[in-house]
Design a protein around this nucleic acid. Structure first.
Lengths: 360, 360
DNA sequence: TCTCCTCCTCAAAGCGCTTTGGGAATATTT
DNA sequence: AAATATTCCCAAAGCGCTTTGAGGAGGAGA
């Protein structure tokens, strides 16, 4: 319980003014290197560290970034979050920034931003899970609070910084890949389509179906929060219907696990009887330990893009923007890898004249 | 981009002194109710909110709680975290506290606490994943930083506040339940046993085996980070061995999902061919949507205790302790529910004279 | 009318830091 | 040796809030 030593005390001990001590510690050129060394040594010895609130009061910088964790419907907390935060957090730690989290119901999110801005709690925020035409963007602009969007709220031409995965392209490629394998009935287990990324994914899927003249069956499309039981329920429903799909696109590995579980219950073999491709955010708790051994073939065929890496990069972009407010907007569009695993194969019933195929 | 209005400006507008305005807003009794109403109205209208750093500089309270997110081996971020944080975050939001997250390698955790303390960044911290004889506890005591431990670092007699689940009892009950069903070879897929909770779980498991005179086979016990691929790998290993277990205890639903996936691959039916009980922290992304419909029988038989609820309660305990530093230590030991699902059944090979059974 | 109480309000002193605008040494040039 | 440039350091003024220690109005009692 040693008492905390402040700048005044430290400068008294050293026989220097507070100015000089402050400058010495903050690397200003006006101070003799010898003096600086002496100051640094004493600071270390006495365990002096500037008070966070005093420093930010004086500088006007909070040295903190705000993240609002929106509780989705049913108060669910999105599991993809923790990995994004882990990535962003690494960057903040590296640059001496603090990460500040608010867990609130979606409706209160605007209040939080107003609070952040007027109390100057943070120097910037990250916008998660943007909707199409998300109201948070004009709000943050009007508050003058720097921000970077993880995802996009429109076609990307709006005046704000963002980092996004090319979701449309990823789902185009995956759908095309399944079609190439002979699949004609492909289901889409999507996220909530109010989310911009989910509607992009659907566009990609539908555009390929249209291009190839494949039947578009609305009963094969689902849109909900991406959790495990969702995939389970939908898969059971699909495979108890008269015309089940031969392939499934899933918006996240979590519902994909539910799908796999349902198939196991029904005695349907993934890969052999039905093909599955999921979007894989590289959630850390699903990563096989990579202890030097060569990686074997992954279980799930997946479109893959690390959400944690995205967190890192978004944080960097935000810090850059805070450092250079007039540096213009930043945009990054990442392509997802298509990684072939064991859950995709040629359509086994390709030759069977299905009712849909009979038409052509 | 309206400019931020501060106390001086507000008091000028009102024609009052800063003191009166501050007192009016902070609910002091010395100010006329009429005046207070006028002040509150103006504050609202001008969108005045006290600067966070100025307030905490003046009061000495940071109004923030620190959480250190330790990156486990392989930089994995523990997925049980987000739910705990969601719970804690709700309480902080309610009491006007900020949640402050630091993502660092395990080795740097002590530095973070020192930083928190000497820069008075936070008023208290939550200690996650305590080891047996965890060095963080004496450190935090010596720093004079209030804290609550989620879990225990010893038998609970140490001088610190904690909230824990009765892990020993839970695993006793689960093991006993399996034994009652006739299982004789029960595997334990545990978490890292440096973690206090994991060693407690093992104790519970082993004590029941001993009490019932069941064989204790070290090759049935595993201890690693609780991720999905871990369960998958171990299950494959177990069921390719000459004497596989007939039941498995799993420390978390994540490896349990891996186990289920492996069994599906091997054509072994959970519940019918092998029984599984997992510890279920009620992770939100695995919860079936409870939209009014009656819940059906859960898939996994599980020891259940909501980690999110624990987050809420730990946060409350910490805030209480900060408010009344001399209020003594708080301890809570929660019992987990044992919820019967579809993955447990009578041991199918109970009567078969296994080599082990032959001895008796 | 004068005094004494309440009740309400205020000026000013910090909280611990950064930063401005010099000023006293010391070194360099004329 | 005087004048100028350089180097190093300092006093003091905020940053925006809370809080202490008084003081001014207004009403009650004498």
């Amino acid at each position: 319980m040693r008492e905390t030593v402040n700048l005044r005390r430290l400068s008294e001990v050293l026989g220097l003014s507070q100015t000089t001590v402050s400058r010495a510690l903050n690397g200003f050129p006006e101070v003799n290197e010898k003096t600086r060394a002496r100051v640094v040594e004493a600071a270390q010895r006495l365990n002096y560290r500037p008070s966070a609130s005093a420093a930010s009061l004086a500088t006007g910088k909070a040295c903190a970034i705000g993240h609002v964790v929106p509780l989705a419907e049913h108060m669910m907390i999105n599991p993809h979050f923790s990995d994004f935060l882990a990535g962003a957090g690494e960057v903040y730690a590296q640059f001496g920034y603090e990460m500040l989290l608010r867990v609130v119901a979606q409706a209160e999110e605007a209040d939080v931003y107003r609070d952040f801005a007027s109390r100057s709690r943070v120097d910037g925020v990250v916008v998660h899970g943007p909707l199409t035409n998300d109201p948070r963007i004009p709000l943050l602009k009007s508050l003058g609070l720097p921000f970077v969007v993880h995802g996009r709220s429109d076609d990307g031409t709006g005046d704000y910084s963002w980092l996004d995965v090319n979701n449309r392209r990823a789902f185009c490629r995956a759908t095309g890949f399944l079609a190439d394998l002979g699949h004609r009935r492909i289901a889409l287990i999507n996220g909530l389509e109010a989310m911009n990324f989910a509607s992009r994914r659907r566009q990609g899927y539908e555009s390929v179906l249209a291009d190839r003249g494949l039947e578009q069956d609305p009963s094969l499309i689902f849109s909900e929060d991406m959790v495990e039981p969702y995939g389970h329920r939908v898969a059971r429903q699909l495979f108890s219907s008269p015309r089940p799909p031969t392939a499934i696109l899933v918006s996240s590995v979590l519902p994909a696990m539910g799908v796999v579980r349902a198939l196991a219950e029904l005695g349907i073999r993934p890969g052999a009887d039905v093909s599955i491709i999921a979007f894989d955010d590289c959630l850390s708790f699903l990563q096989p330990a990579s202890d030097g051994k060569a990686r074997d073939v992954p279980f799930l065929t997946a479109m893959r893009s690390s959400i944690r890496e995205a967190g890192r990069r978004v944080a960097e972009m935000l810090l850059e923007q805070i450092a250079a407010p007039d540096g213009g907007r930043r945009h990054e569009l990442w392509e997802a890898e298509l990684v072939i695993g064991e859950t995709t194969a040629r359509c086994p019933v390709e030759q069977t004249p299905l009712p849909a195929a009979a038409k052509s």
